[in-house]
């Protein structure tokens, strides 16, 4: 095993689970999350010598992950792979609105660009500037996408809670 391989394997062991959690929030299911992490780490491996000269390895890895997610959406990969409307590990519909998994279901319906901003800002706790750099957009875009994403979430949660309450009343 070369030095690069050893360093890569060590870094993967240290960071893969954290990146998979971010990927899970981005894409909505663990299987795709693992695929995204694998693709992102493969890109990282190819760029290893160049990237490790910088101190911002984590930022680069996170940026690669998010861009991989967004580019796969743009290329239509996700739609081709999604043979059912709901992935296997979607939370069951009988979960009550008080359950936070409802939030996860709603998050999956937020447009990918807005979702990426929400995940980076409120899961990764990145600043507006860091988020803008990661997504290669302006800070104004990050702010507007975050606001729209939150509004979309509010609307979706309102829509989801109403029929669930109705079901409970009638059961």
């Amino acid at each position: 095993m070369t030095d690069r391989d050893t360093a890569f394997a060590d870094y993967f062991a240290a960071r893969a689970d954290a990146m998979r959690r971010t990927a899970y929030l981005l894409c909505g299911d663990w299987h795709r999350a693992e695929d995204l992490v694998q693709v992102a780490f493969t890109k990282l491996y190819l760029a290893w010598r160049r990237v490790t000269r910088h101190d911002a390895l984590d930022a680069y890895a996170r940026q690669t992950l998010v861009r991989t997610f967004l580019s796969e959406r743009r290329l239509g990969w996700f739609r081709k792979e999604s043979v059912t409307g709901d992935p296997a590990d979607t939370p069951i519909s009988t979960v009550g609105p008080e359950d936070r998994m409802v939030l996860h279901a709603a998050l999956k319906q937020v447009p990918p660009g807005q979702r990426a901003v929400l995940v980076l800002r409120y899961w990764e706790d990145m600043s507006v500037e860091e988020t803008a750099k990661t997504l290669k957009c302006s800070t104004g875009t990050v702010k507007s996408q975050a606001a729209r994403g939150l509004q979309t979430l509010r609307d979706l949660l309102t829509d989801q809670m109403t029929p669930t309450f109705d079901r409970k009343r009638t059961s």
Partner: peptide, 17 residues
């Protein structure tokens, strides 16, 4: 969400490598 979600086993570094 992350606390209540059951995460799969840790990914294998050798497979990724």
């Amino acid at each position: 969400v992350m606390a209540v979600s059951s995460q799969p086993p840790t990914m294998n570094p050798n497979t990724a490598l």
